[in-house]
Design a protein around this nucleic acid. Sequence first.
DNA 1: AATAGTTTTTAGATTTGCCTAAAAATAAAT
DNA 2: ATTTATTTTTAGGCAAATCTAAAAACTATT
Lengths: 230, 230
Amino acid sequence: MNFSTSEENYIKAIYHLQQANNLVTTNELATELNTKAASVTDMLKKLKTKKMLHYEPYQGFTLSNEGKKVALGIVRKHRLWEYFLVNKLEFGWDEVHSIAEELEHIHSPVLIEKLDAYLSYPKFDPHGDPIPDINGKMETTKQINLTDLELNAKAEVSAVGSQSSELLELLRHKNIGIGTVLEVIRKFTFDNSIEIVIKKNPPFSISHQLAQTLFVKPLYVSATDGSITK
Amino acid sequence: MNFSTSEENYIKAIYHLQQANNLVTTNELATELNTKAASVTDMLKKLKTKKMLHYEPYQGFTLSNEGKKVALGIVRKHRLWEYFLVNKLEFGWDEVHSIAEELEHIHSPVLIEKLDAYLSYPKFDPHGDPIPDINGKMETTKQINLTDLELNAKAEVSAVGSQSSELLELLRHKNIGIGTVLEVIRKFTFDNSIEIVIKKNPPFSISHQLAQTLFVKPLYVSATDGSITK
DNA sequence: AATAGTTTTTAGATTTGCCTAAAAATAAAT
DNA sequence: ATTTATTTTTAGGCAAATCTAAAAACTATT
Ligand SMILES: [Mn+2]
Ligand SMILES: [Mn+2]
Ligand SMILES: [Mn+2]
Ligand SMILES: [Mn+2]
């Protein structure tokens, strides 16, 4: 089956929304895609006839198994291109999203397999999100929200919850990126801000709002020699 | 100004056609783009209002200066992507045209500049065609048609006149590619076929039709030490 | 259970890009 | 100089993707 750019954008958006909610609603999707509910309904009908969706009028919708496969293919392309842009063309990781939003629609299976090989089969994109393999399988690293990290536990930043340029600007300013190892040394109940320390640098605090968008993989410090493992 | 994929394909096609003919006709363009004359007329009107064309009904048309600039930008993107696909992703040079046909429409000036830098500012694409620089300037290597190469003169294949897969299949079979150094050792007047030799390999013959699609840069063999220069 | 509020769908338009068939303009041939 | 043939444009229509406004269906509240 062949899909237009627009159909692909809808399928991918539904995929992301149903990760959180399972059942997706018309208005949710309209908001996500900056379009109107009426336009969404039109597309839902089309995607249903293409067997991409489970959808009954007024009842919400989810991707069919076939739809999920298509979605994972687009996500795969998006994240591989992002990896390419950052690691080969030296873009900043806060500059690549919108370009990948176009590149993900280039239709050529062999292109994406050769790109994957060229990049040495990366497992995560520059934002810490896992890259599905050719069969749609991807790492499910047990990452937790930074707000849930316990006091005095070391952890490695593994993903960010948004790609907004405002967020990425702030992270760059604070020198936090994917792979940064940090430790929470204090939590303030007044505003839920937390104080963290990176390496031997002076501690600094980050807001609850920022902590909520950061995901980390806890690191386990050996009791005997102090070495760090994941 | 912003252009749709369709508009860009038209502009680029007009650019290529007017290289040969100067004044381009509606039917020519329709054939080139596998579309109908009526569709071409529609697009001509649109491109004229966008000041891309000099066009009066029934009188043929050419690109305006602005149109040429846009065309060169698309050609630049097309050829840079082709170079990337062949020299980084290891595609065959006969497999890249249709993929580049899509990639050339990715809209991001900074992307193409970073790609150019990553590729070390190549001057020719995998088919021997010159790549315009950011200002639209490109090499005008004095290449001649293989049919015009004089007997017993060495020359380097620098371009092919078409990207048809039939042609490229034949070239691959005969082991001829961009950069191949050959020498014409005989010309047959009966069918205008010519006999050539590559390195120390056995000579073989190629048809007039094939010779017409090949362009070469003559090499000048030093009279004193036999060394080759361009 | 009836009413009010919200969400979703339908109805009807618009834009872009394409098509076929017919008309108009140009070019070629007698 | 007409007639004939070819090329190009116009007229009218269609499919995809969007929109606004109105109707229909669900949900929540009294
Ligand atoms: Mn996209
Ligand atoms: Mn990403
Ligand atoms: Mn193209
Ligand atoms: Mn080329």
